[in-house]
Computed example of a mutant assay.
Amino acid sequence: MLALNAIGVGLFCWLIFALAVYALPFFVAFNIGMAAFEGGASLLGALLVGIVSGALTLVLGQVAFAASRRLALRIVIATAYAVPAAVAGYQVAFALSHIGVPLPAWREIFACLGAVCVGGTAWTRLTVFAEPGPFDLAGW
């Protein structure tokens, strides 16, 4: 039974890391879908609008990051994707730390480590899509 619990928690943590880069698109999709539903769209229409807006957010963010050559713009785009993922990582790590960590200070430490790890994962996954800038081959 203990082994199944460990496998379940491990699978859940893997899922959080795998979905880290999608925190911002999910947030956008959820809010636009809810706005469409409250604005009078049907359930299916709001779901469709939400899915399209989330996919568009992900694709446009990746294309903008890959196409931009300015480092400051790339940092802003990557931060926009990494911060919601870090907040989600903090919340998940804090919730999971309640299972086996009795001291509140250690819960906060684990939650902060979870935020850094999940935010870093989202940052890394977004930057994988970008090609490195052109190198100056004049010295070769």
Results as ranks from 00 to 15, higher is better:
L44M: 15
P134D: 15
S68T: 03
L73F: 15
W140C: 02
A105R: 03
V76L: 15
A35M: 14
A93H: 08
A78R: 04
F17N: 06
P25N: 08
A130M: 07
L73V: 15
I32W: 15
A115Y: 01
G45L: 07
A3C: 12
P84A: 01
A86T: 01
R74K: 12
V101P: 00
I32P: 00
L71M: 05
A46G: 05
T79R: 06
V87A: 05
L126M: 00
C112Y: 13
F129M: 00
A115K: 07
C117K: 04
F65E: 11
G120F: 02
L60C: 11
S97A: 12
R69D: 12
I75T: 11
L15K: 05
A67R: 13
V87W: 06
A86K: 00
L58H: 10
Y22H: 14
L113V: 07
F135V: 02
G114S: 07
A88N: 11
Q91F: 14
T57A: 04
V9L: 14
A67S: 12
L24S: 02
Y22E: 13
S97R: 03
G139L: 12
A55F: 15
L126V: 02
A86I: 00
C112H: 11
V101C: 00
R70D: 08
F129D: 00
M1Y: 13
V52L: 11
A20W: 01
Y22R: 09
A105P: 07
A23E: 08
V49F: 08
I7P: 13
V52K: 03
C112S: 10
A66K: 10
G139C: 02
F30H: 09
A20V: 13
S68D: 01
A122V: 03
A41Q: 08
L24E: 04
M1E: 14
V63P: 00
S68Q: 05
W14H: 01
W123T: 02
A95Q: 06
R107Q: 10
A85E: 07
V9F: 11
C13R: 15
G61R: 11
L96I: 04
P25I: 01
I7M: 14
F110R: 12
L71R: 15
Y22G: 14
V87I: 06
A85C: 02
E108S: 03
F65S: 08
A82D: 04
L73Q: 12
A138W: 06
V52H: 05
R74C: 14
A29M: 11
F129N: 08
